[in-house]
Design a binder for these strands. Structure first.
Lengths: 325, 325
DNA sequence: TTTGGTAAGTCAATCCATTGACTTACTCAG
DNA sequence: CTGAGTAAGTCAATGGATTGACTTACCAAA
């Protein structure tokens, strides 16, 4: 920066102010141009560490994930990386371990804010994260005691799925959800019930959110089935496992049983039969969550965010008209 | 740090030296203890930005990926994150865009080193990355003009696959590989040929490394097939797509054609039939690559790394004895 | 001609840790 | 008792950018 100042024949403070667009500085156009040229000629770019030290902002955000290797999260991460870059931040990824410990660490390492994709933490556990003085946005779920969350439109997605099944002629449907009693989750199945009518819908809880647990849930689904002709699954990986379970039990999809799931991924194309899904804008969710977090960091207040890009029904082979039985 | 020094009745330079284990400092055990207590009591931890400024080391590594959402890379990323944390670094993720531009950016942002998972760059393009003065480790492939790469043992993995097919009775096998003429890739199929004998093996090149391209390759495989009873696929996602292509063409796996692929992922369980694979230690690859990169940063010389954990054959449903045709 | 006001910059402290050079008080050999 | 040597610390410059306070020169109004 000193070199730039020298070359432009100004004080380094002018350089700093020009670069950071300080409104309190007034400069002639000529001076400004000299500075900008010097910056270009020396291909100068400010030292992040120095800036971080002075401003006590590191320009780093951490995205904390329960497990890195989950396709669902990746879209979000991808969107978050992109947006972070646009806003001048860098995104560090980390796996969820112990809240208190991790928080201390991030505090110490000068992270500016945290994106938290929890999958399966209850509000108490989340409390630990929110109580620190570090900005945290909880991604992909709603929260009752806080505004710092972001989500996609699950009720609407569930409605889309229900409409699809309804229009195929299904009247009795089971719901397969994850283990938690999370506000977000129940909204999914609530919206779903609304469309198909009020009668009792059997809801099965898988013990997790991954394919294995969906596979394991197949048995329970078949055992408790009473004339239902379709299964609505609230998370794609569960459905992938379920499909395998059904296949091995000799249930043919969609003739015997239709399956539809929330969330879409390329993978849905490659299971057999290809899985009908409702695609949700997870990339945008990542982007908007970063924007929201950065706003918090900058003390611009902002409420919760629900991504407005509409869910898309992706019809593949796992849904069809109910068979006559 | 000043507070700690005050509390321990020493100069802050003593604190600094105790904390960074400077061998040039000599202190009495008592003084050292006082410092350590003060650190604990104030739960002090050094300011990363200040340290970064002073030492011009940011403690940040960037893992550059062609696309974040690929399960293969994720294991590596996961291992890398873990190891980086152990070594006191944080891992930033980024998607591959334009080399020169990205390099400048990382230089400016004070990144200490780069892990580069290229999938499909040729050595020229890689050259751009290697020529800067920034430490770069190219992950998951070999390089001819540089020592800065890390890989897993592909020849051995290919041998395992070949042995498996051989012991099932297959004698004529096709190979489906990715598009590049990369040293790493040909090593895979070379080792493979060695086991099954010298006769010409038909090698099909998919136009990419993802499921779609495997799907597209199915047609070519069937067209060029001449009595081969198995396909060896050098990358799992290709095989996943291939399986779908074969299914749609009415080829039954493994009765008509066995399929075996390199790399394993949970996903292999959920395609139909479940895919037989050779699992490679990608998590360890991520770990060791970080270790290697950090050594480079610290100027400890280190050659290329090949992860020694052995590949594991994972037999699932996509391989079987050749059918009589 | 003086005064006030403003545009255009400049000054210098500050963020916090690191590190080469230096001091001080001892101990021990001669 | 003296000088050399060492253990145990201390001093202070340094890294690069930011920012509140201050200066200087010039113009316009009275």
């Amino acid at each position: 920066m000193k070199d730039v100042a020298l070359r432009a024949h100004v004080d380094i403070s002018v350089v700093s102010r020009v670069l950071s667009q300080d409104p309190r500085l007034s400069v002639t156009a000529a001076t400004r141009a000299r500075v900008e040229n010097a910056v270009r000629e020396l291909s100068y770019s400010p030292n992040r560490s120095a800036r971080a030290l002075r401003t006590s902002k590191s320009g780093l955000l951490t995205f904390v994930l329960p497990q890195i290797a989950n396709p669902l999260y990746l879209r979000m991460v991808s969107g978050a990386v992109q947006k972070a870059k646009d806003l001048g931040y860098q995104l560090v990824v980390a796996e969820l371990t112990h809240a208190a410990e991790q928080l201390r660490e991030y505090q110490a390492s000068g992270i500016d804010g945290i994106l938290l994709a929890t999958g399966g933490l209850d509000e108490d556990q989340l409390g630990e994260w929110m109580e620190g003085q570090m900005p945290v946005v909880v991604v992909n779920r709603t929260l009752e005691n806080s505004e710092n969350w972001s989500s996609v439109d699950y009720p609407r997605a569930a409605t889309l799925a229900a409409d699809h099944l309804g229009s195929l002629g299904h009247r009795h449907v089971m719901v397969l959800t994850g283990p938690e009693k999370l506000p977000g989750w129940s909204a999914r199945s609530d919206a779903f019930r609304a469309v198909l009518g009020d009668h009792e819908t059997v809801e099965i809880r898988a013990s997790g959110l991954y394919a294995d647990q969906g596979y394991a849930a197949a048995a329970e689904i078949l055992a408790r089935r009473q004339g239902e002709t379709a299964v609505f699954v609230t998370s794609m990986m569960l459905a992938v496992g379920l499909l395998k379970g059904l296949r091995e039990s000799g249930v043919s999809v969609p003739e015997d049983l239709s399956v539809i799931a929330l969330h879409d991924d390329d993978l849905a194309n490659y299971v057999s039969p290809p899985l009908t899904t409702v695609a949700l804008p997870m990339y945008q969710l990542g982007q908007l969550s970063v924007a929201q977090l950065v706003n918090m960091i900058d003390d611009k207040k902002e409420g919760p965010i629900v991504v407005t890009d509409p869910p898309q029904l992706v019809v593949r082979g796992s849904t069809g008209p109910p068979g006559e039985r």
